[in-house]
Write a protein that binds this DNA or RNA. Structure first.
Lengths: 198, 198
DNA sequence: CATGTATGAATGAATG
DNA sequence: CATTCATTCATACATG
């Protein structure tokens, strides 16, 4: 199903395989919201929320004021108010805060690591560990030098056999079901939901 | 996080030290060519389950069929079957349903309110009440209902019983609210943040 | 017109 | 079940 909150037909094909042709249908006219919205040149294209300057300002102010993760009702409120400046949905507000917070944190982390990098050139191992901050995982990145199927795959059927993925080293050794096969002998690519529903 | 997942090896803070199970450790090349061919979506990197289209389809179908909270057995079954299309673990299935359900719900809520917004312009009071659904607080937020002038209007305030402020219970909102009443000299298309803050 | 950057959107994975 | 974090995908926009 069109999971997520995409109201528009922005169907994203997770794997650019085959002829997906997203064909983003000329989305339902979004009720010309863009009209004169942001004074600052804002090509109001539809398909993805394009915040007005005023909207951004307000959001930023709120953020600066300390609001980081608004509750649902706060989101509603903000959204309502911001709708005054142009088209906006609550999910936009939601995402905005989500992203803003995350990126700020990310940036901070980056800077931190970079500092470390300057000082700890030689110990670039600990960098990762620091990144994990407490989890202290062993990075161990033996990369397979990926010289193989880097080109492309006719299909996307992900069968990455050789990763350094920990366990489960047997992707295909095991065809499908166990007991279900008794009842139905389906062909491979179609597994039966009715049973798994059980 | 209770009985349901015990079978998947989903430990809750196992030992605070070594995640025995999935052990994320994506640890992508620190700087390397992250971009790379990734563009086509579906980075083949592992560390996090990246469902196949087929897998998603099946899961979605199951969901549509009414399955919302599969039991452990069901999860096992589904996982087994889906493993045909690619690497997958039970916990992935578990999480998938968890997320899918939650997000659909969230979306629903938002859309609902959004619709209310459209229809109940005139009664912008009841919107909040609906949002609270059960707590029925009096919001009383007289707002310009996107029609007239942008000039500042009598800032009306509401009496919002913010009884469930979590971490957001920062002193900001307080100060903001008070402060603004004193000097409301927003010359701009001012919408009141302090209000929307709550 | 290609490449890089900022950011909206989505979703897997947790945690309480 | 809700809420949050992290990571990634996709797109708008700027630059050369």
């Amino acid at each position: 199903m069109d999971e997520g909150m995409s109201d528009f037909g922005l169907k994203l094909s997770p794997t650019k395989g085959g002829p997906p042709s997203p064909a983003p249908a000329p989305a339902p006219a979004p009720a010309g919201a863009g009209a004169g919205a942001g004074g600052a040149g804002a090509g109001a294209k539809c398909g993805r929320w394009n915040p007005t300057n005023e909207q951004v300002k307000v959001l930023t102010d709120l953020f600066r004021s300390g609001l980081r993760t608004p509750t649902t009702d706060q989101i509603q409120n903000i959204s309502s108010q911001l709708s005054f400046y142009g088209k906006i949905e609550s999910k936009n507000v939601f995402y905005w805060f989500q992203n803003h917070k995350a990126r700020e944190r990310q940036k901070r982390r980056r800077v931190y690591v970079e500092n470390l990098d300057q000082n700890d050139h030689h110990f670039n191992v600990s960098k990762q560990q620091v990144l994990e901050s407490g989890r202290v995982i062993e990075t161990l990145q033996l990369f397979p030098v990926n010289s193989l199927t880097f080109s492309d795959q006719p299909e996307k059927v992900r069968a990455y056999t050789n990763d350094e993925c920990k366990e489960n080293a047997s992707p295909f050794m095991y065809t499908c079901a166990t007991e279900m096969e008794n009842h139905y002998q389906h062909r491979h690519p179609s597994l039966d939901l009715r049973l798994s529903f059980m």
